[in-house]
Every structure is written in C-alpha cells, then in structure tokens.
C-alpha cells in the first residue's frame, strides 16, 4: 500500500483528533491573531459611531445559547461601544431565549470598570423589552406601535411607564437597529420588513453559516453593515477597542482552518496520485 492509498483510507477519527488538538492548543499559548478589518464591518462601525449621544438604538437578540460562541462576542463589543457613545439601548428578542441573552450579555458588560463608571440606569439608558412571538409579524407590528407589540418589559413594567420608551412610538423614533441573528426569524426578516418597508437603518451580526444569505442585502444597500461569524466579531472588537473572546478564539479558528485546508490539499493530492497510477496501470495492461 502506497502513502497515497494510506491517506485515502485513513480513519476519520485521526482527522477529528488533529482538528481538536489544533483548536485546543492555542488556548494554552499566549498568541494573538490580528484580523484585517473588512469593509462591511467598517461601515457598521462608522454608522454607529456617527450616531449622536442619546440616539435610540434597537437591538434584537434573535439567537439561543447554541450560537453564543459566535454572537455573544459581537453583542458584548456592540453594547460596550454603544454605552460609551452614550446611546440609549432598547433590547428585545424574537427568539424565546433572546431576553435571557440580553441579561447574560449585560451582566458581562457591567463587569467592565469603564462601563460601570458610566453609571447606567435601567429604564433610562437601556431596557429589556423581553420576547414576543409572531416572527416577522412582530416586526411589522412594531412599525405601527412598539408599545402594542411589547406592552411591558421583562420586569413587568408597562412600556409606557419606562422613561426611555416615552418618546418612542414606532420605528420612526428609532435611529438605528442592530440585529443579532442565528436563523429564522432574523436578519432576512428585519431587512424585508423593517428596512425595506419602514426605511429603518439596519446593521446585523450573523452566525457564519447564515452570513452568506445576508451578503446580497449588503451589496444592495439594504443592510448598513454586517458582522459575519467569529471573524466579523473579532474585526468589530478590534475597531471598537474592546477586545474580547472573538479575538481570543480567532487563533484557534485560524489553526483549525489551516488543518482543514491541509487535509483538503493532501486528500486531493492523494486522490489524483492514485487516479494517475490507476490510469497508468490500465495503459500498461
């Protein structure tokens, strides 16, 4: 058996093991990975940076714990950046676990000394409106009245009694919408209803598996900016200066990708080598 044959019949568990090692070893090394910031991340950053203090930003957390490794770093960096810009944040979820993700991210954000020093007040600087079912119909309803779709926040306070919500009726009172999405309902629905129907300025952070679906909207100007997967998160962290888990994880991510590329190259080389030998043997016969 030649080397090429051995490569083609290798037990797939060896591949799993090598990938696992490539992912794990960087955790024990003091290595960082610099990301080149892509234009779609830069435009999102610029759009948020251009907002004046006290602008209203609506953030929809449309994901669950399964997508936390990709979307939490984006959420954390976005929240920190928005708070330091003194933006007013209205947070909600169209996924049942969305409001829980809001709380988990806020808890981590408030561990930061710089954010704690801002002395942010619930109801005045930020609010968690909770979950509402209805998917795209909930978004459509918010175009008419956010108060009707979310009659109370997660603490049970009537939306009309919350200071941050008193001059907010619908999307026309929102300066920017940021959607963190892992599927349906998510960025596609926010583009179709909020951006295209109500003219909302929309940015998004997507899981990598979903990002290719959102890119056409970016090219057509329906999305202001897009953070695609962990790399998008790392780029945003770099721009905002709030380096977090995405930057840390990118070393493992890069190592794993190099291993995958190496296996693809070696596997293809072995495949073509065996094909060539088979043809040669066939010709000799």
């Amino acid at each position: 058996m030649t080397f090429a044959d051995r490569i083609l019949t290798i037990d797939r568990r060896w591949i799993f093991l090598v990938v696992a090692v490539a992912l794990t070893v960087p955790f024990f090394l003091n290595v960082t990975c610099k990301s080149r910031v892509s234009p779609e991340v830069r435009t999102l950053f610029a759009a948020v940076e251009a907002l004046r203090p006290n602008s209203k930003v609506l953030i929809s957390f449309d994901y669950d714990p399964a997508s936390e490794p990709e979307l939490n770093p984006m959420a954390e960096a976005f929240l920190k950046f928005a708070f330091t810009r003194r933006l007013k944040l209205i947070m909600l979820g169209l996924w049942p676990q969305g409001p829980l993700e809001v709380d988990r991210n806020l808890a981590r954000v408030f561990e930061d000394e710089q954010i704690r020093a801002l002395d942010l007040q619930y109801g005045i600087d930020y609010v968690n409106l909770g979950y509402q079912s209805g998917n795209e119909f909930a978004i459509q309803g918010m175009g008419a009245s956010i108060h009707n779709v979310f009659p109370a926040d997660v603490r049970g306070t009537p939306t009309g009694d919350i200071p941050i919500m008193q001059d907010v009726q619908n999307f026309s009172n929102i300066d920017f919408v940021f959607n963190l999405s892992a599927g349906y309902p998510g960025t596609v629905e926010w583009v179709q209803v909020a951006a295209d129907r109500f003219g909302v300025t929309l940015g998004a952070g997507n899981t990598a598996v979903q990002a290719p679906l959102a890119y056409p909207y970016l090219g057509a100007g329906q999305l202001t900016g897009l953070l695609g997967g962990m790399k998008g998160g790392a780029e945003f962290e770099e721009l905002t200066g709030f380096e977090g888990k995405a930057t840390k994880y990118m070393v493992s991510q890069t190592a794993a990708h190099l291993v995958v590329i190496l296996f693809i190259v070696v596997g293809n080389a072995a495949f073509f080598a065996t094909q060539r030998r088979a043809r040669k043997l066939g010709g000799d016969a």
């Binding site: 992912l23 990598a208 962990m230 991510q253």
Partner: peptide, 25 residues
C-alpha cells in the same frame, strides 16, 4: 458561491466547538 458558503459553515461549526472547549477549559 457554494465554496464560500461551505467555508463559512466550517467557520460556524468550528466556532461552536471552540465555545465548548473554552467552557471545558
């Protein structure tokens, strides 16, 4: 297009595994 989608899918799945490894460590 499919290649780009596949690349993104690999990144997504690796990210999930990284999340679990980070949790364990």
């Amino acid at each position: 297009t499919f290649g780009a989608s596949f690349g993104y899918t690999v990144m997504s799945r690796m990210s999930l595994l990284i999340g679990r490894i980070d949790f364990l460590i």
